[in-house]
């Protein structure tokens, strides 16, 4: 049987970028980063339980420049994943599937994520004594 010249679905490289697909892959990527943050959380708790010296060691790493970049990064990924997670839970209830609704909820999540991440960074900088 001869192979027919049928249309192929577009490959990722030539697929027009859309907010829907971008937010979907961002949800995965922030989830993976958050999962790494869980290991840092375990380290923090173990250090806190182990004693002053272990805790000082943790604080030294967390307070270093790469440590702070990581912590502020975790704040952003956690906020995004949580807010977009709400969007997913609403979808799981069978709501909000109309395309205009999907776009509206998407932009809402992005706006709220920026606001909450900003607030969290400001709070972190304030208690950290930098702002």
């Amino acid at each position: 049987m001869a192979t027919q010249q049928r249309p192929l679905s577009p490959h990722l490289q030539i697929y027009a970028k859309q907010i829907t697909s971008t937010m979907s892959i961002l949800h995965r990527m922030t989830g993976i980063v958050n999962a790494l943050g869980v290991l840092v959380l375990a380290w923090w708790l173990v250090a806190l339980a182990s004693g002053g010296e272990a805790y000082a060691q943790f604080l030294a790493v967390a307070g270093s420049l790469p440590g702070q970049v990581a912590l502020f990064g975790f704040a952003a990924t956690l906020v995004y994943h949580l807010l977009n997670g709400v969007r997913h839970l609403v979808w799981d209830m069978g709501l909000g599937f109309e395309i205009p609704q999907v776009y509206r909820s998407g932009y809402t999540v992005i706006a709220l994520a920026v606001v909450f991440t900003g607030l969290l960074w400001y709070a972190g900088l304030s208690v950290g004594g930098a702002a």
Partner: peptide, 28 residues
């Protein structure tokens, strides 16, 4: 677990920020 984290993450974030700069004894 997502539904549980909907409530627990905000609590944790507030807790974590409030513990920045707190010494070992007080954090413990």
């Amino acid at each position: 677990s997502a539904a549980a984290l909907l409530f627990l993450v905000p609590w944790f974030v507030i807790t974590a920020v409030s513990l920045v700069g707190v010494d070992h004894a007080n954090a413990r």
